[in-house]
Design a protein around this nucleic acid. Structure first.
Lengths: 209, 209
DNA sequence: AATAAGTTTAACCAAAAGGTTAAAAGAAAT
DNA sequence: ATTTCTTTTAACCTTTTGGTTAAACTTATT
């Protein structure tokens, strides 16, 4: 583990883990301090209050993740290649930190003042152009590479399919997976291809190979 | 509002709302009492502790919802009709109480002892047969009505597509929807058909109309 | 070496939150 | 009517938790 990390940074990292795991109310300042191996007063020395610490972390995570997702819309590739690339890359992104999506969605759902303020900021920045993904989809429809469909509906299906396993893993695994023979990594790998096949053939014009 | 409701039931309903909205840690006993218009001691008189109250509610909600979903696998209809029916009914189910899915998934993610115990109970009861949905899908594949695919992958795509909007509405709406012209109910109605079209053509053998 | 500035801690504090109690109020049984 | 049992409350208690403080310790500055 990094030894050259400052206490300030160590607190942030540890707090992030705790907030991600337990949420805004479930995470406790004392526990963060203990896990980081430092005195609780240091948390306040560097970040003033729990709310401010939480805000910093939530803001960091949502900006980071939203921008990573929007980056996936930037590449200039064919429509089918875009679908494939998006599914594969987004799944990898989710799998890199599998608890972050639930954290973000949970906090967004709860939607207190801090969350609202961060979200407003994010929108007002105009850094995340909705035009790009919409254009990709609309162009594909114009070119006849995709059936007619509200782009928002398409995006919801695409993202929802990728997201599901990471959001619902506990109940999904409990109900459908017999642990002895389950290889999580392999399942996720196969997940990508399954989503790709389903969505690709689900939206390209019927009768095309 | 119902006047003939017992205090015991009133507490349960009010607590349910609060837990759903704010989660296990976010909900407060005092606030539940206030919202129900009764003394806080009554909560303990009827339910002993916050944890027990929470357990009762979580147990009720997960049993109820899991069983409602599994009911959708019971009907004896054609494969394409099954897909259609599942998507339409499950979306309606989600929309009836749009905050419950996030509550359940959130709590399942956090997964404390109470949650684990309830979940173990649910599995051990064997009341929810995984065989049924798996059989529907396997049979369709045998009959050549569906391409070859791990049934678990198919279910993940199906459920994930339906779930997404209700789990991610705050951020999805913020990013993609301009409020002035958005009709939520209409979007959900169109959502059903969009999912149906995508998944149906995504999994039936290529070249079929 | 002395001093000043920043860092870290142990000990406290105050507010919030879960939980208890004893008594009052209401309903049921005699 | 009186007693008994259940329901409901106000007041109180205890623990948890976020936050503060003053002093000790480090590190830079002169």
């Amino acid at each position: 583990m990094g030894k050259n990390i400052s206490k300030e940074e160590l607190i942030l990292q540890t707090a992030m883990q705790q907030f991600i795991e337990k949420g805004r109310h479930g995470a406790k300042m004392q526990e963060i301090a203990d896990k980081a191996g430092i005195n609780k007063a240091l948390l306040h020395y560097y970040y003033r209050s729990k709310e401010k610490l939480y805000a910093k972390i939530f803001e960091f995570l949502i900006w980071n993740n939203v921008s990573e997702v929007f980056k996936l819309f930037e590449e200039d590739i064919s429509f089918t290649e875009f679908i494939r690339k998006f599914i594969y890359s987004y799944t990898d992104l989710l799998n890199k930190n599998p608890k972050i999506p639930m954290f973000l969605l949970r906090e967004l759902s709860e939607g207190g003042n801090t969350v609202k303020a961060v979200l407003k900021n994010l929108v007002d920045s105009k850094k995340f152009s909705v035009e790009k993904p919409l254009t990709i989809i609309n162009t594909a429809m114009q070119k006849g590479e995709m059936v007619q469909m509200d782009p928002k509906q398409f995006i919801a299906t695409l993202v929802g399919s990728c997201l599901f396993f990471f959001i619902a893993e506990p109940i999904f695994a409990t109900l459908f997976i017999d642990e002895s023979s389950f290889n999580r990594d392999a399942f996720i790998e196969k997940r990508k291809e399954a989503i790709y096949q389903t969505i690709l053939y689900g939206v390209i014009p019927r009768g095309e190979a």
